[in-house]
């Protein structure tokens, strides 16, 4: 692998996505600030906005950076230069993850900070937020694998829709669990076993999906 080529390609894609990235960062900031407002309605809307921004960032960046290169025929241009399939794949997967993780981590960080700093918020919420955000991250990595394997916008949207349905089901069941409710309302941070199990499964899915994305991308015989 040529680290310099990977760096150049990574920075190129980061530059190409800069306008959207700034937009999503602004959306992430706005939604995080809304969740911290001292009104329940504003907080609820803020939380829904956070989920929306996270989903939109994921699908947009996969479409723009992963699938767009094939659709716009810019992949052939890049691969006609001294870049190996491995260099290309590493830079692509890294930049797509990075552009998703920047607003994702900003929202998670601000929401967790708010739960400690805001007078009306319970610190126990801190254990619920990572489970929800990591669920969205795992959905995103599965979408990434589907984009790599199928190279198809259609199939990636199908996976995205399935992920969103899954997120709704997850939120309904996870937030209704008595141990999670008790932990969220607690004045101290306590990690119920269910939350730890959920986080463990989510990280298995995330790491497995990223490994699969690399595996399938680097095994492709024809990239144009």
């Amino acid at each position: 692998m040529n680290a310099n080529a990977v760096r150049i390609l990574f920075l190129k894609d980061l530059y190409l996505s800069r306008r959207f990235l700034f937009g999503y960062l602004a959306g992430a900031m706005a939604s995080a600030i809304m969740t911290c407002l001292p009104y329940k309605a504003a907080s609820d809307v803020g939380f829904i906005l956070m989920i929306t921004v996270t989903i939109a960032t994921g699908i947009h960046m996969i479409g723009l950076l992963m699938l767009g290169d094939g659709l716009e025929h810019t992949r052939a241009f890049v691969l006609s230069m001294p870049v190996s399939v491995l260099d290309y794949s590493v830079s692509k997967i890294a930049v797509v993850l990075c552009t998703f993780l920047i607003p994702w981590s900003l929202m998670l960080g601000l929401a967790m900070m708010g739960s400690f700093l805001l007078p009306y918020a319970k610190p126990g919420v801190v254990v619920v937020l990572p489970a929800i955000f990591c669920f969205m991250l795992s959905c995103f990595t599965i979408q990434l694998v589907s984009a790599v394997v199928t190279d198809s916008i259609g199939w990636t949207i199908v996976v995205m829709v399935a992920g969103n349905v899954g997120l709704n089901l997850f939120l309904m069941n996870f937030n209704a669990d008595p141990s999670v409710i008790a932990a969220a309302k607690s004045e101290t941070v306590t990690w119920p076993p269910l939350v730890l199990q959920v986080l463990a499964v989510e990280w298995l899915v995330i790491l497995g999906a990223i490994a699969m994305a690399f595996y399938f991308q680097t095994r492709k015989r024809d990239l144009v």
Binding site: E72, T74, P82
Partner: peptide
Amino acid sequence: SIVKQEIGYFSDDLRLYGAESLGWHMQF
């Protein structure tokens, strides 16, 4: 990737990034 240092390839299938300038492409 080593050999391509010495090759110039043109095809109708190749597209440049429409939103960027020629100068940006030259830098890239």
